[in-house]
């Protein structure tokens, strides 16, 4: 075809399934290990997990986390141990949802839900403080009025953390190395990632091969 080969290429695409979806009307299921907005977890007895060590702030490539630790009050401790996160702020105008804070956290205090549909009308709202980030008494994320929760986003936060073996050794795979969480207890290891079901408009995309390889 030579110079006119491009016409064949473009015409061929017309008969292929579409890769885009009708987003706000039809939403695809999110992958199990999706990175969304954070939550600060609590132990099963309601104590906060954060110890104010600032490792998350140190590792954050976007410099969006601000943490200040303080000594626990003796009569009313916030977290087990000596210190707790006195101030904890995440600026969502900067956060890139890389999950490095989750990797850095020694106590699994911070994890990410699968929520990404939240927007703000001013910069103040973009800075989440402990009031917004800390899980409620049921262990679920506190839903803000500007967030669009469809359900299921905070079922298994940062699931990749509970799926990968420490140091990649097969011997550790599936062995629980994390503490319990408020409302959930000690969570099961997440095994195998399921690809999201193919969208209705286009059956049989590459997702099928991936799920076959994982299971």
């Amino acid at each position: 075809m030579g110079r006119l080969g491009g016409f064949r290429v473009t015409l061929r695409q017309v008969f292929k399934p579409k890769v885009t979806g009708r987003y706000p009307k039809e939403k695809r299921p999110k992958p199990e290990r999706f990175h969304g907005r954070h939550v600060l977890n609590r132990y099963e007895d309601g104590m906060e997990k954060c110890i104010g060590c600032e490792l998350c702030a140190g590792v954050c490539p976007a410099r969006c986390i601000y943490v200040r630790g303080a000594d626990n009050p003796h009569d009313d401790p916030v977290s087990p141990g000596e210190r707790y996160g006195f101030v904890y702020e995440i600026n969502y105008l900067r956060c890139i949802h890389c999950d490095l804070c989750v990797e850095a956290c020694p106590t699994e205090a911070i994890t990410e839900t699968k929520l990404f549909e939240f927007s703000f009308s001013n910069r103040e709202d973009a800075i989440y403080t402990k009031r917004e980030l800390l899980v409620g008494d049921d262990g679920r994320a506190r839903r803000q009025p500007w967030e669009l929760w469809l359900g299921g986003e905070d079922d298994d936060t940062s699931a990749w953390m509970r799926a990968t073996a420490p140091s990649g050794l097969e011997a550790y795979e599936g062995r629980v190395a994390w503490s319990g969480e408020l409302g959930f207890g000690v969570r099961e290891p997440e095994r195998g990632q399921q690809a999201p079901p193919a969208i209705e408009a286009g059956p049989g995309r590459s997702g099928d091969e991936e799920s076959a390889a994982h299971s």
Partner: peptide
């Protein structure tokens, strides 16, 4: 959009 596997304005 058809030729680029998209849906286009909708």
């Amino acid at each position: 959009a058809d030729m680029q596997n998209r849906i286009g304005p909708q």
